[in-house]
């Protein structure tokens, strides 16, 4: 898509967001509502302005959102999967898993190196957060044992 098209969509998106925020803020009493209303309307106005400006004289040059769509998709999907697994598997199990799986998914083919790096890294994280700081981390279903 061209920069012009992107900026138009971005402008309209923010205009919508601003209007929604302003509309939501009408429900807040007194000065608590005025301030977000002003902000919401400003955002809507600026968004529209951006959309119009791009329509008028936006650069019709392509501007790719991602350089390598495949790798971005893999990273985002595995990243989201990791966050979803943290409360289920527990922090350490899920983290160890992502540290091994993600490099492989991105095309890294040195299993021993990957495993060693992941193990070393997890050891450091464990030392700092559990050993030194004693911070409680999600334990997942292991805690029942």
């Amino acid at each position: 898509m061209t920069a012009r098209g992107q900026d138009m969509i971005l402008g309209l998106l923010f205009a919508g967001l601003g209007l929604a925020a302003a509309w939501q803020a009408t429900g807040y009493r007194g000065a608590s509502g005025t301030y977000p209303q002003v902000l919401g309307l400003s955002l809507a106005g600026l968004g529209l302005l951006l959309a119009l400006k791009s329509l008028w004289r936006g650069a019709r040059v392509p501007r790719p959102l991602v350089d390598h769509p495949g790798r971005v998709a893999v990273t985002v999907a595995i990243g989201a999967g990791y966050l979803a697994l943290v409360p289920v598997l527990g922090f350490y199990a899920a983290s160890a898993l992502v540290a091994v799986v993600l490099p492989v998914a991105l095309g890294f083919r040195r299993p021993l190196y990957t495993l060693l790096a992941a193990a070393g890294f997890m050891a450091v994280v464990w030392l700092v957060f559990t050993g030194l700081l004693a911070k409680p981390l999600p334990t997942g279903f292991w805690s029942g044992w």
Partner: peptide, 14 residues
């Protein structure tokens, strides 16, 4: 939902 069930299970165990 899953977390809820796990939580309930843990509760009983606890």
């Amino acid at each position: 939902m899953k977390t809820l069930m796990l939580g309930a299970a843990a509760l009983v165990l606890g």
